[in-house]
Computed example of a mutant assay.
Amino acid sequence: MRHNPRHASEDEGLVRRLVLEHPWATIVSAPGGQMVASHYPVMLDPHASDLALLTHVGRPDEVQHQFGHDHEVLVVLQGHHGYISPSWYVPGTSPAPTWNFTAAHLHGVPQVLEADENLHVLTDLVAHFESHVDNPLWLDPQLGAPLARGTVGLRIPIDRFTLKVKMSQDKDDVSLHQVIDRLRADGPYRHDALAADMERARDEGVGRP
């Protein structure tokens, strides 16, 4: 990602929140110099004090990525994002249109889980996401075993990360308020969730002096 100190953050807590709120991840590797990308849900390892992700991939993705050969992967996470028109700023502030977003690049070497660990992670993933529905259906380990055989479980300890929270922090307070209002107004660029993210970043002082 293009570096901008105003939008950069080293707050691991914000990364953890991004994983919880936007768990659909892109896993990128380059075994033998050839780029491979896959898309899977991730969750935080609840038993780790350090930042680590749990996930699984469907076979044969593990072969394409060559997991188990001790090479690093890049995990890309993205929060709410949307177009920001310069017409929403105080007149004369900036002529440039832009895009507000939250994104994180996480780096680590995946650990391939044994079959019993993979089944445990699979049931934990289902339980994690089912906990948010009205009538959750838990995955019984016996019923889940055939499903687990078609997957490869991964634990990815995160060695380092880059986090960017770009929420109009470089704009004056009036322009910031107007952008939030426009994102909540009817029209093609309405994005209530992005407006809420902007308010949260403003209230938490993310990226502001």
Rank of each mutant, 00 (worst) to 15 (best):
G187I: 13
V63P: 00
E12M: 10
A8P: 00
H22G: 02
P60H: 02
S131L: 09
K166M: 12
Q111D: 13
T151Y: 00
P23T: 10
Q64G: 03
D140V: 08
R160F: 07
A127V: 05
H128Q: 15
A37W: 02
M167T: 12
H107M: 04
P97L: 11
H191V: 12
L18M: 09
W88H: 06
H7Y: 15
V42L: 06
R17A: 14
A96V: 15
L139N: 04
D70E: 14
V206M: 09
R149S: 14
D11W: 04
V90A: 02
A195C: 12
Q78C: 06
L137P: 00
D186L: 11
Y40N: 10
L44N: 04
Y189E: 15
H69A: 13
A185W: 01
M35F: 03
R190H: 04
D159Q: 14
I156L: 06
V28T: 11
Q178R: 15
Y40C: 08
T93Q: 10
A30L: 05
V165D: 04
V179F: 09
M1A: 09
P41I: 07
Q78H: 08
P60I: 06
V174F: 09
G58E: 10
D124Y: 00
D61Q: 13
S85C: 08
T98N: 05
R200Y: 12
L14Q: 09
V206H: 08
E10Q: 12
V112C: 03
H7R: 11
V165H: 03
P23H: 05
V75A: 00
Q178Y: 08
E130Q: 15
D50L: 09
K164H: 05
V76A: 03
G92S: 07
G33L: 04
L53K: 01
A103E: 09
F67G: 02
A25E: 10
T55Q: 04
G33K: 01
G205N: 11
V133W: 03
L77F: 06
M35C: 08
Y89M: 11
A196F: 13
V15E: 05
M198L: 15
L147V: 14
F161H: 00
P5E: 11
E10Y: 01
H7D: 13
V73C: 02
L125C: 08
H39N: 11
L74Y: 04
G79Q: 05
L194R: 02
Q142F: 07
E204L: 15
P86A: 10
R59Y: 02
V42S: 08
D134K: 14
L137C: 07
L44Q: 08
K164G: 01
H71A: 12
L54G: 08
E10D: 15
D172P: 06
I180F: 01
L113G: 01
W138M: 09
R59L: 12
L106V: 07
P41L: 11
L106H: 02
M167E: 13
D124Q: 10
V174T: 14
G68C: 04
Y189D: 15
H22D: 05
D192E: 15
E130R: 05
L113M: 03
V121E: 03
R155W: 04
A52G: 05
D50Q: 15
I158T: 07
H107S: 01
R155S: 06
L53M: 10
P5Q: 12
D11Q: 09
E21V: 03
M35A: 14
G150H: 11
T123A: 10
L74Q: 07
L113W: 00
P157V: 02
L194C: 08
H56N: 10
T123V: 14
